[in-house]
Design a protein around this nucleic acid. Sequence first.
DNA 1: GGCTGTGCAGGTACCGATTT
DNA 2: AAATCGGTACCTGCACAGCC
Length: 423
Amino acid sequence: MPKETEVLALFFQSTSTPEKSPQLKYLENLATGKLVHMRDGNITLYKRERSKQWQMRFRLYDKKWHRVSTGYEDLEYAKKKAGDIYDRARFMEELGLPPLNKRFDSAAEATKVELQSDLDNGVGKKIYVDYISVIDNYLTPFFGKKHLTNINHQDIAEYEVWRAEKMKRKLMHSTMMTHFSAYNRVFDLAIKRGWLSDKHPVPRLGTKGEKSTPRPAFTRKEIDYLLEFLKTWSQGGKTQEAHLGRLLLRDYIEILMATGMRHGTEAFNIQWRHLEWHTDKSVRYLRIWVSGKTGPRWLIARHEAVPVIERLKSRFTEWDHLTLDQLLEEKSDEFLWRHPNGERPYDFVSSFKWLMKDSGLLLSTTGAKRTMYSFRHTYATFSLVEWGMDIHTLAKQMGTSVQMLERFYSKLTATLAAEKLAG
DNA sequence: GGCTGTGCAGGTACCGATTT
DNA sequence: AAATCGGTACCTGCACAGCC
């Protein structure tokens, strides 16, 4: 009894026409052995034009077709391999896991979806925005088409070279850490989804970048000069807006120097109700409730802060009938840093830049650029060196750890200790 | 020898800000 | 607005000491 394929071959030899319908073509392929079915039609083996190896497509219970190469040119080997792949895929399907090896871009895309949905639902972190852009700009372009299981140390090394070229400069350590985290998130998600076994070693991205340098502080001489300079500078300004900005900046800087608080969210969002008097051993101190990077805390302002807030108050004519004490009693919701017309400055950065330019204090002796953060460093330095504050009190006041202070100011404390030891 | 607590150093995740 | 950087908090692994 002749085989089915032989009969079909005979049939098509006699009836073939120049134009073949898809069905005819299919039957012809079947007849000529270019197409092979297995497992009740759930597996089809076929060849592609540009490859000698047998390819397979297979259908699972989900009715979806998946495609993969068997890797064999010999049909018998290919059939055996196809059976293995199919069985494994069925097994994975039963466990609720994806049946095939995934490429990096699948995991990257899924990671992005997860990060974005967290952001949309308000549970995401700020850094997720960075992760998404790292995935888009660096990780997917390089690793996208590679299989998750195939990425190795060699790829990592090549990636780092590629990234360095793309960025055209040396990356800072902290930037590399951001990339590192984004990369790990992609692999973590792949493991979580079962696209990669948790036994599979994931090659890690390097993080040995440039060390960050602390912002420069001001010397005592420089700060004295600056505060003096501000008196006249704050009277100027080409436009009314610029003038108001200068007035406010002067107050702002003096408060930063009197408290050591962080420039930015911490200082910027202070309201009048956050100021109050605090009496200790019959001395009255101004204390301020701030909330920022390291959570909320009380800090004590140096006495120099009091005339500053007096001056600030005096610019608001609606408060003329109140004394400072009465104003503080009122617990006003108004922001401290605002103009008499009620508007808040966008930030102090641009007026600060002008101040540095005009005063000539932009660069430190080492050539580093001053920023608003320089006042915080200056405060820390003065506290330790001039004002004899102990490092624990300072840490509490500044909302940082003793460890961190020691890291930056250990030279100062060493000098101090020497002075004390020498009597 | 193995277990457990402690302290330290370095690694990792993230936040807040500046720069472009 | 996007890209990047400076900085902090938390985590992890390891050395060491004291104990069973």
